[in-house]
């Protein structure tokens, strides 16, 4: 189970622009660093981050080895309807994590 922190307003007015912030615990190992034994530590990164609002994709980001550990992503969306915003991270070694928040649009 992955460890995620999500910050989104609980209630917003229709048409308002809101900021969504998502933080996840992940080593983001680049694959270029040698370990204590001199061998390269195999790459282990998150490759893709997506967010959907009631199933409709609102944000997608491709991550690279240059992204720091425990990546923090913040982006904006326009509130149209109440529902669930689902955040999804997928990456190397079949890594998959999910988090979601309920937002009420008034």
């Amino acid at each position: 189970m992955a460890n995620v922190l999500i910050n989104a307003p609980k209630t917003v007015r229709k048409g308002e622009t809101i900021e969504l912030k998502a933080l996840i615990l992940h080593p983001m190992e680049t694959g270029f660093r040698p370990g204590a034994n001199g061998q390269l530590i195999p790459r282990n990164i998150i490759e893709q981050f997506t967010a959907t609002w009631n199933g409709v994709e609102i944000f997608r980001m491709k991550m690279s080895p240059a992204v720091a550990a425990n990546p923090y992503v913040s982006f904006f969306a326009v509130a149209k309807e109440s529902g669930t915003i689902r955040f999804q991270w997928t990456g190397d070694r079949n890594f998959s994590a999910e988090g979601s928040v309920m937002v009420t649009v008034t």
């Binding site: 460890n3 995620v4 922190l5 999500i6 912030k21 615990l25 425990n70 923090y72």
Partner: peptide
Amino acid sequence: DDDTANPAMLYVQA
């Protein structure tokens, strides 16, 4: 100060 931006809070959760 922001508990959802402070990465240390991930460890607190764990």
